[in-house]
Amino acid sequence: MSSQPTNPFAETEEERRGKLVENLVGISTLLMTWLLIIPVLAIIIFLVYKAWPALSIEFLLDNPEKKMTAGGIWGPLIGTFFLVLVSLIIAAPIGILAGVYLNEFARDNWLTRFINLAVVNLAGVPSIVHGLFGLGAFVYFLGMDRCLLAASCTVAVMTLPVIITSTKEALASVPMSFRVACWNMGATKWQTIRTIVLPNSISGILTGVILQVARAAGETAPILFTGAMISSRIADSGWEAMVPYGLDDRFMALSYHLYIISTQWQNVPESFKFGTAAVMIGLVIAVNSISIAFRIYLRSRKKW
């Protein structure tokens, strides 16, 4: 026994307890992460299972018929597409340019801090408030009436803060040393932004914009009073079916359509309701996947 030298590095009692805590923390954080995934998977599986009888190419491409008890969801689908498109055409340039100003040009003074505060607060405004604001500002005050343009403007206002914030963050992630290098060769701020800063932050900026597609497509409240309608007759085929709504037309949209057939309309087959929801979720997942793939692609091209 005495021939064995005493171990100078023996574990103490506290360490043994510390190890136990370490393991517990590891396991519980892992569990919480798994808990996060379960609802996502449950929702998707449940939706697809319930929607299965309705899901088909015709469901996507046909217009609703017989008081929405037959046909498909083409009208709302294309309406949502144009809503998203027009709102991004409005919001993306404004948001990106504002982000560029705030990150690259603005000095740190009370006005800048005020604008930043306003952006943060705008992001926290509930979507129903955006809807009522859109009704007052675009529909009545600017006299647009309820139409695609008014709804798109409302959705644009709603998506702006996130576009501004993600643009700012993407620009801020470009190392300062690149800007310093440019300035010291005599480059103006705009030359620096155009040649170095924007090309190296475009993936982050576009990711922020694309993620807003999902938001714009999913929200019901902002379009509720500003342009969405329950049902409108549109062409079943041809060019007219591809571009069924003008900027001054009222339009159908997926989120509103889902709300209507789930709560306001009778005798709609259950699979239609779940089908519409599944298509919406599918759209969101598709858009997010595209944005992630795009980001990976752009990141692979930049190294510093």
Binding site: P175, S177, F178, V180, A181, C182, N184, M185, G186, A187, T188, Q191, T195, I196, N200, K302, K303, W304
Partner: peptide, 25 residues
């Protein structure tokens, strides 16, 4: 011209780095 403590080549090609100054002027 200025040279810095940490080398700060721009995240573009070697060729474009050398010509960058001429580009902005």
């Amino acid at each position: 011209g200025m040279v810095f403590q940490r080398p700060n080549p721009l995240p573009i090609s070697i060729y474009d780095n050398v010509l960058f100054g001429m580009g902005i002027h």
